[in-house]
Structure formats: structure tokens, C-alpha cells
Amino acid sequence: MRLRIITSIIGIPLLLGIVILGGEVLKISLGFISIVGMYEFYKAMDIKVNTIKFVGYFFALIFIFFIFPNTQLYFIFFICFLFSLFLSIIFFHKKYNIIDVGVTFIGFVYVCILLFFIIQVREYTLHGEFFVWLIFISAWGSDTAAYFTGLSIGKHKLSPELSPNKTIEGSLGGVIGGALLSFIYGHICIYFEYIPISNFPIMCAIIGGIGAVASQLGDLTASSIKRYVKIKDYGNLFPGHGGVLDRFDSILFTAPLVYYLIILYKFLF
């Protein structure tokens, strides 16, 4: 517990600074986290398969430094990525197979692509610098609410085989907590006149509640993978918290959801 608190005391201000600065600082930071996260994923999956790591890392670096955020190049990029993976099972057919291709490709999409939606939200033209915090509020805020709700009134197990400590009551508390915290955040933005949108708190509450559901699904997905390869944590980059995927598993699902909810809101209103 002491390690978790110390890591949070150091990590939270660092995260705040990186997200506030945005730009290249945020991109390089997420690039580093992505590579570490992919390393953790590949290392875990190598217990069951034989990931084509050198191709995965190479194209991750290409994506981070040369492709993102130019979405017009995404199609050709993915074609080249898959083509290179298929070449690997031709020239190294004794070492790799089609399962290794699929797992390697999934590792890149699961970690790098989903994580980079944080930048997509942060750089969004319509108040992206404020919307980006909904990712962390709906993920980590709801996680905290779920923990304390489950601790106090949790009785019915949510998914005992994947995550024995999670309860249905805790899950519902997390969704309510994510929506409530996001609603409060929206009111703060309105109060200080950061955003001239009258219904912004309601919008934040909706995003926060849906984001909380996504964060729990992300957490259960990571737990399912860990159960499959029989490991407790992906790594130890964050003392007391585990690795990148242990700390950002909920963020991976929440970030793209928040991005597309913002687009949907703009389209509808």
C-alpha cells in the first residue's frame, strides 16, 4: 500500500503536467508507454505463442513518429504491417505461424492505437484540453468508487473467474461514481468559465457513466489475458501498481470511447 501511495504521489502530478503540455511532450510520453506496454503484452503472450516482436516494435515506432496523426496514411500503414507479418511466416515458417501474426498485430492495436486516442481527444478542436480529463475521471475515478462501494456493500461477485474481488454492487458504484465525478468536473469548468456550453455537466455525466462501463470492460479484458497466460501482473514499472497494462488497462477502452462520444455529441447538437 505504501508503494502504491508513493507511486501515485509522484505519478499524478507528472501525468497532469504531461497532459496539460500536450503536443510533442504528450506524444513522446505516450510513445514510450506504448512501447513498454507492447513489450509487456508480447512477453506475457510468449508464454503461449511466439510473437513476432521485431516487426511489432518496428511498425509501432513508424506509427508513433511518422504516421500519427495522419489518418490518410493509416490504410497503407496497416497493409504494410500485415504484409511484413505474413512475410515473417514465409521466411521464418519454422519459428512463426498465423497465430503469432494475429497476436502480434492485436498487441499493437490493443496498446498503441487505443492509447493514442488520448492525443486525439487532447487535440480535438472543440475544447479537447478539457474533454481529455474525462478519460481519466471516468476510468480511474470510477475504479476508486467501485473499490470503496464493493468494500462496503459488495456481496454478489461480478466475474469470479476473471476478477474474484469485483462485485456487481462495486461495478454499479463505479458507474455512478464515474458519472457523478464527471458531472462535478463539468460544473467546475462552467463555474470558472472554461467552456461556454450550458449543458456541459450533463454531457460530462453521460460520458463519465458510459466511460466507467468501458473502463471496467477494459480491466476485465486485461484480467482475462492474464488468466490465460497465468500471470499476476504484466510488469513492475509502477511499484505497487504493476506494469503499464496493469495501470492503463481501463484507459485503453475509455480513451477511444470518449473520443467518439465527443464526435457524436457534436454531430447531434
Rank of each mutant, 00 (worst) to 15 (best):
T7I: 04
S8T: 15
P13W: 13
L16V: 13
G17Y: 13
L26H: 07
L26D: 02
I35R: 07
I35C: 09
Y42N: 15
K48I: 15
K53I: 12
F59C: 07
A60M: 14
L61V: 15
I62K: 04
I62L: 10
I67M: 01
F68S: 02
L73D: 02
F78V: 08
C80E: 14
F83I: 11
S84K: 03
S84Y: 06
F86D: 02
I89V: 12
K94P: 12
I99K: 04
G102W: 09
I118K: 06
I119E: 10
Q120N: 12
R122W: 09
E123C: 08
H127L: 08
E129I: 14
E129K: 14
F130Y: 15
G150V: 06
K157I: 03
L162I: 14
S163P: 14
T167L: 10
E169Y: 13
L172D: 05
I176P: 06
I176Y: 07
G177V: 08
I184K: 02
I184C: 06
Y191T: 11
A205P: 13
I206M: 12
V213M: 01
V213Q: 00
L220Q: 02
S223F: 14
K226T: 12
K226F: 13
Y228I: 04
K230E: 08
K230A: 06
N236H: 15
V244M: 15
F248C: 05
S250Y: 04
I251M: 08
I251A: 06
